[in-house]
Computed example of a mutant assay.
Amino acid sequence: MSSGDREIRDRSTVDLAHIAGHVAELRLGEANDVGIQLRLSPGPALTSGDPVMLERIVHNLLENAISYNNPGGWVSMTTAAEPDGTAVLAVTNTGPTVPGYDMEAIFQPFRRLQADWVDSERGSGLGLAIVRNMARAHGGDVTAVPREGGGLVVTVWLPPDAATQ
């Protein structure tokens, strides 16, 4: 059983806005190198969990959004809290059109869109599967929907931080 397959027991209060800012700073050079503009809209999004795993969620989503994009495109990363305190991270990108019927399949291990099988430089197809496992281990979930004009909107919901409720 991988660490993402079980519930997280040792939890710390974490603001997804801080993690998103940190990861965006780390990936900014890569985005600039391939002509992708990063947009960050951080709002408080408190949750509790394993900070390293939560950073991995953000890292994987940003890495995918940059890798599966169009030259001159953009990636937007937003964090916020819903009225009930649920922490939300949304990563939106420009990119190729993704059929709605492929949304569930992209969360399966080693699954990439058909056209990407010949391009091994883009990864192994584990990024979104890991994101889903880690989000669920934290009591949350993740969804993806196609963005009109191409690209995706991937949204992670995590339970509110009990210490701040």
Rank of each mutant, 00 (worst) to 15 (best):
S2D: 15
G4D: 01
G4P: 04
D5Q: 15
R6A: 14
D10V: 13
S12H: 15
V14G: 06
H18C: 02
H18I: 06
H22T: 12
A24Q: 03
A24N: 05
L26W: 13
L28A: 15
G29K: 08
E30H: 02
N32Q: 08
V34S: 04
I36F: 12
S41M: 14
S41D: 15
P42L: 07
G43D: 10
G43S: 10
A45W: 10
L46A: 07
T47R: 08
D50L: 03
P51E: 04
V52M: 00
E55H: 14
V58F: 04
N60H: 13
L61I: 03
E63V: 07
A65D: 01
I66N: 01
S67G: 02
Y68L: 07
Y68Q: 05
N69M: 08
N70V: 15
N70M: 06
P71K: 10
P71S: 05
G72S: 11
G73N: 06
W74R: 11
W74N: 07
W74L: 03
V75K: 03
S76L: 15
M77C: 11
T78I: 12
A81W: 05
A81S: 15
E82V: 02
E82M: 14
A87P: 04
A90K: 14
A90L: 11
V91A: 00
V98C: 00
V98S: 02
V98T: 05
P99N: 01
P99W: 00
P99L: 01
Y101I: 08
Y101K: 08
D102C: 09
E104R: 14
A105Q: 14
F110G: 04
R111D: 08
R111W: 13
L113M: 14
D116Y: 14
D116N: 08
W117R: 14
S120K: 14
S120F: 12
E121W: 15
R122T: 03
R122W: 02
G127T: 08
L128C: 11
L128I: 11
V131A: 02
R132A: 10
A135N: 04
A135M: 01
A135Y: 02
G139N: 05
V142F: 11
T143Y: 11
T143E: 15
V145D: 09
P146L: 07
R147P: 01
R147D: 00
G149C: 09
L152A: 00
V153T: 13
V153C: 07
V153Y: 04
T155C: 11
V156H: 09
P159T: 09
P159H: 06
A163I: 02
A163P: 06
A163Y: 09
T164S: 15
Q165W: 12
